[in-house]
Design a protein around this nucleic acid. Structure first.
Lengths: 346, 346
DNA sequence: TTGAAAGCGTTACCAA
DNA sequence: TTGGTAACGCTTTCAA
């Protein structure tokens, strides 16, 4: 059933039917009611492609997920973020066009999307410092919202986690448990989020009168192997850390492996806190565990980003804004610092 | 730059330019070369919407992810599956249109997609037994591939994990470690995958001369709370299980919580194997840990599903087929059965 | 308040 | 091997 047929059925012109269905004011209410009823009766749905061509709007929003080829893997937080966004899009009649693209093809992919005109707006994930995608999109003039941000001051709309505060809080939490040697297994510090996390750790230590020990701080691509190797190195030190902060779940897997190998029990011999981690809880035994809480937060962030983007598409003069700065830390296997420093063997 | 402009520039008709660019044979190679060069020079990209309208093909494939409202959450395996699919789509020029839809709106959502004609094919996730979506799609006549399957015999193309064999193997593995009381925290057994998992466990026990104990088998919506409550109940038994099989990562979280609360150490006091789980490894210390392996498998499954779907779109007469029956089990915190049955207190 | 007709940017049919 | 022109299904301008 297409517009033409429907119009013929009703003895009206396509124009009128189109207007009636799209809520234009210059249609008599009597006519509109008739049209709407008929449309419902015949289960008429406009062909989106034709509509898109005619209006110039595709009613679709693009999300481009970067995957590092080095470890071909999707960061799990994206799933919840996208789910939240999708929910909003569906409600507003937008489609979500997802593409998973290797890091190095990001920029060309954005160009393609823009010139194909297949989406009305874009959601940018995982920005890097001075990310070239951002000026590119600004130049192209396509509305976009960034999940994360590429620098301290950002002149675009973004949604982010308060990485600095989260890691500061986690650090203070550990110090208050009695830990004094706290290691950080960070992501690559040429990413803004990683810099902010490191800054948070340093602030937290300073706030408790401790100094950051560079020997306990690692930074690299977030892989399981990295977590394993770095943790192994740290645990082999004469004065090994009693607590570790991991910048991702994946890294935490590696840490876990290293700990198991040495016969260490997490939470007793070694405390572990991992951001965007879903393994365990600060608050043991709560009915609403933290891992549910964080996933909901990410979900919510996706929702807000989507809303902002839709608003921006509708009104391109919308000013850039901070949409959400969620504040959470997820803990896994934390406990007080052990009384002795004795290294254990597997 | 549109086709018209490009044609004008070249002093050719739109028809010829279009043909040259789309690889039609009836264009002289000289002309084609000229056209291709000019297109590249002007960075010409056809408008996908116009193309879609003209061809009737939208070059997009829809994935509809179900979320249960009860625990608003996305199953993490979808992320890898979709990433794999996306990779394939991108290479073939397809877009991936993702929608996350509450369970109860699935069917109407599929109808909408079909009548909007916004996608050329669909990927169906999480089928239920006698899933109404499947006859619906068959009736509509839109190509689709199912991630999972809704019954023992399926007359459509699907990709799935060999749930039965995986759980059978896991069970045998545990028995061989000396476990005799093995609990199962299954998903809802009105899903085919859960039935198959249960069958696998029963087969595994039978193969080792043991009988399944219904008192050790639970089945419910896969939530953390369920995992916690069921595990707590099991661990409070006079003869508690020494090993548990969890049907999902989320359930394993709950089990972990229950175990911690009772002071049990996983892998020593209680063995835990969880399907689609990424927490730990059968093969401790391997350089390629199993959790990487499983994610790659799921990724690969997505890739294959996508390829099959594209093939089916190109040739609607393609016969339904089984595309992959991946065979793996992921273990977390497994170890030999404890010598004593003494219950420990937290 | 309604309708005719001209786009929107392609592809595809039919002639040349 | 090329080109003219009618679709594709809708919106939107302009007239009535």
């Amino acid at each position: 059933m297409k517009l033409k047929d429907l119009a013929a059925q009703l003895g009206l012109s396509q124009t009128t039917v189109s207007r009636a269905l799209n809520g234009y004011p210059e249609v008599s209410e009597v006519t509109r009611a008739r049209v709407v009823a008929a449309a419902k009766r015949h289960d008429y749905r406009p062909n989106v492609r034709a509509k898109a061509l005619a209006t110039g709007r595709s009613m679709a929003i693009g999300h481009v997920l970067p995957v590092s080829n080095s470890h071909e893997m999707v960061n799990p937080v994206f799933a919840d973020f996208i789910a939240g966004a999708s929910e909003t899009y569906t409600r507003s009649g937008y489609d979500l066009v997802l593409s998973v693209v290797p890091d190095e093809e990001q920029e060309s992919h954005y160009r393609t999307m823009a010139s194909k005109q297949s989406v009305d707006g874009l959601l940018v994930h995982s920005p890097r410092p001075d990310d070239p995608r951002i000026p590119l999109l600004q130049k192209i003039g396509i509305p976009f919202v960034v999940h994360g941000r590429d620098s301290e001051v950002a002149d675009y709309s973004w949604v982010d986690i308060n990485n600095r505060r989260a890691f500061r809080r986690a650090t203070e939490f550990l110090v208050d448990l009695g830990h004094t040697r706290i290691g950080l297994l960070n992501g690559r510090e040429d990413y803004e989020f990683a810099r902010r996390r490191r800054a948070g750790v340093e602030e937290g230590l300073a706030a408790r009168g401790l100094r950051a020990d560079p020997a306990l701080m690692y930074s690299d691509e977030m892989t399981e192997q990295y977590g394993y190797r770095a943790a192994s190195a740290l645990l082999a030190l004469d004065a090994p850390p009693t607590a570790l902060l991991a910048s991702s779940t994946i890294i935490a897997f590696g840490i876990r492996r290293a700990a198991i190998e040495r016969g260490l029990v997490l939470g007793r011999d070694l405390s572990l806190i991992s951001h965007d981690d879903v393994l365990s809880y600060f608050r043991n035994g709560d009915e609403e565990p933290l891992f549910t809480a964080i996933r909901s937060s990410v979900w919510e962030a996706g929702r807000r980003a989507a809303e902002a983007l839709i608003r921006q598409i509708a009104d391109p003069d919308t000013l850039p804004q901070i949409l959400l700065e969620a504040d959470f830390v997820i803990g896994t296997s934390t406990g007080p610092a052990p009384k002795t420093n004795a290294k254990r063997k597997a």
